[in-house]
């Protein structure tokens, strides 16, 4: 079943100068159509300014299409009557860990979403406990978020979304401000949600190594979908990725260089084990 579907989605915003006069129109998303199935792990790649974050905000009904339609679980995001239902089915984790935690104690923050949804008190506690356990932050439930590392804060944010029992979580560059350890923590948590809880994950990032396990990858450029396919299919096209100035995993790049030097290798090698095997060692 389709959880997020976009048809001919276009989003434009009007730029204004200091006096408020119209300066021009920017097309952030340009005629995008895609269909994401329930339970998938989807990655959306692209540069800053490629339109990927703007797209993400459509899934949560924070932005509405200028043209075209976005459906979340069959609900049209342009219909105001659907807004709250959409927001509780499609949760969102943002980039800056400090700017999305509302509570001053970890457990209170996780309870914020359910509180807003009018969940009864006892069930809130149950959900908070489950969510914190799912991201491995249960032992920190009484701590102040200010005392946590970046990766831990993001895991709290994930738990906060999880407690709303969404069908789908959009991660908008959740690791951009983290160090390598924090990045691993967050990606591990996201993958666990997908594997164990069956929640659809839409991961927006510019780190290649985070998307190797995705079911499907969309590469965005200038508001359009420039490439789509499985990670292997996408990474097979090293030249195209390079033209978009995106990173390619180092192994894939090495295999690509070896091929150029006449070594016989298949396209889209993603791990060092695959390389060792492909070289017949």
């Amino acid at each position: 079943m389709s959880i997020v579907k976009a048809k001919d989605l276009t989003f434009e915003y009007i730029r204004r100068d200091e006096e408020g006069n119209v300066d021009g129109i920017t097309t952030a998303i340009d005629n995008v159509s895609l269909d994401i199935k329930e339970g998938q792990f989807i990655a959306i790649l692209g540069h800053n300014g490629s339109g990927k974050s703007t797209f993400a905000k459509h899934i949560n009904a924070i932005l509405h299409p200028t043209e075209g339609t976005v459906w979340v679980d069959g609900m049209d995001t342009s219909d105001d009557a659907n807004v709250w239902n959409i927001r509780h089915e499609a949760g969102m984790v943002f980039q800056n860990p400090d700017n999305q935690i509302i509570g001053q104690v970890v457990e209170e923050d996780v309870g914020f979403g359910p509180e807003n949804m009018g969940v009864p008190t006892e069930e809130i506690w149950q959900r908070v406990e489950e969510s914190l356990k799912a991201v491995g932050m249960y032992e920190y439930r009484k701590k102040s978020p200010n005392r946590l590392s970046g990766g831990q804060k993001q895991r709290v944010s994930i738990a906060g979304v999880l407690a709303m029992h969404p069908k789908c979580i959009v991660f908008d560059e959740p690791t951009a401000m983290l160090d390598p350890n924090g990045r691993k923590e967050v990606i591990r948590a996201a993958r666990a949600l997908n594997d164990v809880e069956g929640i659809t994950v839409i991961l927006i990032t510019h780190y290649m190594e985070e998307i190797i396990h995705a079911d499907k990858v969309f590469v965005m450029d200038k508001g359009k979908i420039a490439m789509e396919g499985t990670p292997r299919e996408v990474f097979s096209k090293v030249d195209e990725l390079k033209a978009l100035r995106l990173d390619v995993p180092q192994v894939t790049l090495l295999a690509y260089e070896l091929k150029k030097r006449g070594v016989n290798l298949p396209d889209g090698i993603l791990t060092k084990e695959e390389l060792v095997k492909a070289l017949g060692l």
């Binding site: 390598p180 180092q250 192994v251 090495l254 060092k272 084990e273 060692l281």
Partner: peptide, 18 residues
């Protein structure tokens, strides 16, 4: 909690594979 560049790991893996 640090990692050497990927290349280092690849080369070691190849070395280990003979």
């Amino acid at each position: 909690g640090l990692a050497a560049p990927q290349v280092t790991y690849i080369m070691h893996a190849l070395n280990d594979a003979g």
